[in-house]
Amino acid sequence: MINGIIEWLSDGEHWSGPDGITARLLEHLQYSFSALAVVLLIGIPIGLYIGHTGKGSVAIAGSANALRALPTFGLLLYLVIGYGDKLPTDWIYLGPSLFVLVVLGVPAVLSNTYAGVQNVDPAARDAAKGMGMTGMQVLLRVELPNALPLILSGVRSAMLQIIATATVVAYVTLGGLGRFIIDGLSQQDYFQMAGGAILVAVLAVALDLAFAVIQRYVVSRGITGRYAAPAANADVVAAESKASV
């Protein structure tokens, strides 16, 4: 069985052409990253705003959990048959697909951004204000860099969820790696299905690792604790020895 899958994957024919693996892979990335871009545009500003002002934090906690329970696949099919005909032809399937991927990704980014800003050391925030930073400067120069680790892990999990779920858009006639799964099923070609599944898995793992590397370099070393020089404990000024007779 495994051999069959390997054979399917290593067949050069399967990689080329408009419905080859390379093309499907690119489509998959295209759907995923367009959705992720929208997720960032929505999630980060709103998360920053809520974290900075503290307004609406209760609503966020509640709705993030409810959104997690929403079945993405069902929502996609519902939107396509319920609203697809109201969209321009090119968007009948693409619109709902991107929409559900965005809905899927926003909660992780938004709630992590919010939590990241909330978790900034209140003393640092107070000092920043006290030194005369404007609200915007406090946000961009202090809160954002300190919230970055949490924001990035939110982006990372949103990205993984989107990559995984972008597979289902093939069910509504779109492309992407999910095509191999859907087509394999209807053609009773298990090797093709499993090959597609493995490709999605490898893509997810590879992007996750790449992201981990980025995360390392983007976050300030003062926050991650990976310092260049070893930390020293010795106090610079030696304690003044008490004169005594």
Partner: peptide, 16 residues
């Protein structure tokens, strides 16, 4: 505020 120095209990240094 920019013309007034401000020092607080836990220093409030910017960790990043």
């Amino acid at each position: 505020r920019r013309g007034i120095g401000y020092v607080i209990q836990h220093a409030g240094l910017f960790p990043h």
